[in-house]
Computed example of a mutant assay.
Amino acid sequence: MAPITVRFDHLLRISDQHGTFEHALGAEPRREHGYCTDDMARVLVVTSRQPEPDATVRALERVAVRFLDEAQAYSGGCRNRMDVNGRWTDSYALEDCWGRCLWGLGTAAAHSDTGLIRRLSVVQFERAAHARSRWPRAMAFAAVGAAELLSVDPANKAARSLLKDYVTVLPEPTGDDDWPWPEKRLTYANAILAEAMIAAGGALDDAALCQRGLDLLGWLIERDTGDGHLSPTPAGGWSAGEPRPAFDQQPIEVSSLADACARAATMDAAAIWPDTVRAAVAWFQGDNDAGMLMWDPDSGAGFDGLQRDGVNMNRGAESTLAMLSTFQQAQRFAGVPQ
């Protein structure tokens, strides 16, 4: 396996003064497709938690904070899409981009080594946190961001209020040991649902909620493992009785598992959590259902998808950020090659 190196070369190459381009054709950014808040929230997450970032990474962190600021409405909603000329092309909403915005801002408030970024992130978080979403993943991302902010500012009223409201809208446990998952089908970024329960349980001193998240995450890992390696839920989703492995597999599923397991490891000493982070790295390194490398060690680019017959070699923002995030989490655990 190639050694782990968190390289921002490709991410910087597909970024400019407005943001990071959403899509790429091969290694070239597809400028005509513009930028999105979903990706810029991810950019803020990986740039703010990078140890000792250089000047170029710090500059991209500032671009991300500015992008998220401009995406927000004063009432809390969030726009998602900006064109190549810096014009917003959609309306304010409370969908996943809103939740990811709060996730990015809470993470930066907790982890950025730049005081101005931390202060701006808190201000923007508190503005967006006035709103609530009816979408489970949006609320889950927002809850993780709130828990991050509370880790450094336990008295923050906006973050604590959001977390308490998040808990009230959680579905009741299914009572089905075979399918405890809160949805009838696994879809996308599944692990965020479990991670949010773990994060909220820790922040609110709710041991039962934390344990529910840990149990769900453990169940998800079992579903997303086959033949000794990660075999994540495909882009089309998965439900009991459907064949595995299944394709197209997306890097976001792997990074979501790594993030959730890294958080779980702070709450529980079981070996499954660091082991799964290591398995997530191995998935990018070729220990996957197709035996194919899912990143470019020379540039730090992530490939867009694992298919039955090979790899989607496009290197868009989401896949690259998923790889960078996974490698960052891996560096927290001993035994991962670096």
Score class of each variant (00 low, 15 high):
A235Q: 10
Q250P: 01
E242Q: 14
D248M: 00
D227R: 14
Q249I: 05
P232L: 10
Q249Y: 08
G226H: 11
S239Y: 03
G228A: 09
Q249L: 00
D227M: 09
P251Y: 11
P234F: 11
G226A: 14
P243V: 03
W238C: 02
D259I: 13
G226Q: 15
H229S: 14
R244C: 11
S231K: 12
F247E: 03
W238L: 13
I252P: 00
A246W: 14
L230V: 12
T233I: 12
P251N: 04
R244K: 12
S239P: 01
P251R: 07
Q249A: 02
P234S: 12
I252M: 06
G226P: 04
I252L: 12
R244A: 02
W238A: 00
E242I: 10
W238Y: 06
Q250V: 11
P245A: 09
V254K: 00
L257C: 04
S256L: 04
P243T: 05
P243R: 04
A240I: 01
P245W: 10
Q249S: 04
D259C: 01
P245T: 12
H229K: 15
A258K: 05
G226Y: 09
S256H: 02
E242W: 01
E253R: 12
G226T: 00
E242T: 04
P243Y: 08
G241T: 00
A258N: 03
D259N: 14
A246N: 10
I252F: 14
D248Q: 01
A235N: 09
P251S: 06
A235S: 14
L257W: 00
G236V: 08
T233Q: 08
Q250C: 04
A258P: 00
A235E: 15
D259F: 08
I252Q: 10
G236D: 14
D248C: 00
S231Q: 04
S239I: 12
S239M: 13
S255Q: 06
R244M: 13
G241V: 00
F247K: 04
P243L: 07
G236E: 05
P232H: 13
T233A: 09
S239A: 15
L230D: 04
S239G: 14
D248H: 03
F247N: 07
